[in-house]
Design a protein around this nucleic acid. Structure first.
Lengths: 243, 243
DNA sequence: CGACAACTTGACGGGCGTCAACCGGAGTGG
DNA sequence: CCACTCCGGTTGACGCCCGTCAAGTTGTCG
């Protein structure tokens, strides 16, 4: 249990350091956070639209999707998340959830009281800036997704989504373009790109046929990264990854 | 000149207070910000994708649109902004712009050095929280737009965009649903909803014909707000307006 | 009155949704 | 060890929503 908490804090610090530089006191502050580790099954709702939010969830392992639903019942995924992501910074200073987050695989979560994070953000400005930067980068990704679903065709849209996912996995130190596991179903790809499963399937097979990628089951491989980026109109600048 | 600066600061404080409560010292801190007022013509680029960003722009009058462009040249507007909005909080802690902002009408801007705002955010936590909340709410709007362009049909999409625009105008104290001026062209509505002008035109006329709204030139009137909300699948919860 | 931007309208076509099957693998239980 | 179920992937036929193209019309500003 203590081991779990220690590794959760390590993960949190490592990941936050991608968004800022910390001195020893900053790290001490982070290490003093109280948190509660939990293992949850696939499909677990981390937060649901309309819920009051008073804690913040660190994804310690597995994948998650942020989504909203239309009155028609259609679901739209607005971002994916991986190991190390803080899933609830979006609601850090808001009282009620305006969207939902669900894990896409069996996952390990660590809950942190929101009030402690907020307090720390002003006690240790470097930590606050890293958290805020994280929010700003999330927002940048949302904007790119508006463009993606609003102005690109099916082929480009899917290629773009895959490029982003791979780029973020690599930045987080999880796998590379040379063979990786896509932890999502075609239904989820459809929900992320604003398409139907049928058309996602057709488009993936077309990309495969054109040697832009190859698939077998969940295993994907990208032979020519530059080509996929070009098909997907993908420029990683909007991810604001540190140089 | 001094008068302009004073009114800019008043506007900034009034608008920020929608996102938090300030005491006298908070307001003093804000009032001490240095700023530079400028009048710009329609179409002026407040910031352009790729630019370094080291100042923050307050929109003192007029309307603005935040947008990105695809390789195909298609433009996607990702949000609209009105008098009182801080246009560059999205880049507050980022070095380079990942998108562009353009004014849609003749407009008055006030520039604030980013560094001063950042310093103030930690000196006066109430100010920092209000600024951060503003960012989070912007992000919530982006998410809603992903849903809007991803999962709604033309009629619902346009109705939703109009509802949001009117709701935000009312919250900012600019006009009401009973007759207001839409400061954008059908081309801009198309760019915001991921459609073509032709189809925007058809859809607007259909909404007009069905008495969901009435138009003459830029003048819009909404007779039955509830009905338009229902057509547009609009629930203002995601705007997180203070009760 | 000419120039230009914005809006309007009709004809046509295609990208993608819809509907409806079928297939294949993984889990489950008898 | 084999049926059964369920979920996810695959495929084809068909059609509609919305994009494309192209031609007006209107309003405004010089």
């Amino acid at each position: 249990m203590l081991g779990q908490n220690a590794s959760a804090l390590d993960l949190l610090i490592d990941n936050l350091e991608r968004f800022g530089t910390f001195n020893a006191e900053d790290k001490d502050g982070l290490a003093a956070l109280s948190l509660q580790v939990e293992r949850v099954p696939r499909g677990f709702d981390v937060v649901h639209e309309g819920d009051p939010v008073n804690r913040c969830c660190l994804l310690m392992g597995g994948f998650a999707a942020r989504y909203k639903e239309a009155a028609s019942g259609a679901r739209q995924i607005v971002s994916f998340h991986l190991r190390g992501d803080l899933l609830d910074v979006e609601h850090l200073l808001l009282d009620f959830a305006d969207h939902s987050v669900q894990v896409m695989s069996e996952a390990t979560l660590a809950w942190i009281p929101k009030a402690e994070l907020i307090r720390l953000a002003w006690e240790r400005p470097a930590v606050g800036k890293a958290l805020w930067r994280m929010c700003l980068i999330d927002a940048s990704i949302f904007r790119e997704w508006v463009l993606n679903v609003g102005r690109r065709n099916a082929r480009t849209r899917i290629a773009h989504m895959l490029c982003e996912f791979v780029a973020r996995c690599e930045a987080a130190g999880l796998g590379t373009a040379q063979g990786f596991e896509l932890p999502m179903t075609q239904q989820q790809i459809a929900d992320a790109t604003g398409m139907t499963t049928v058309h996602v399937n057709r488009t993936l097979r077309a990309l495969d046929k054109d040697h832009a990628l190859s698939r077998s089951g969940n295993q994907f491989r990208i032979h020519d990264w530059g080509r996929l980026c070009s098909i997907g109109d993908f420029d990683p600048a909007y991810l604001h990854e540190a140089a």
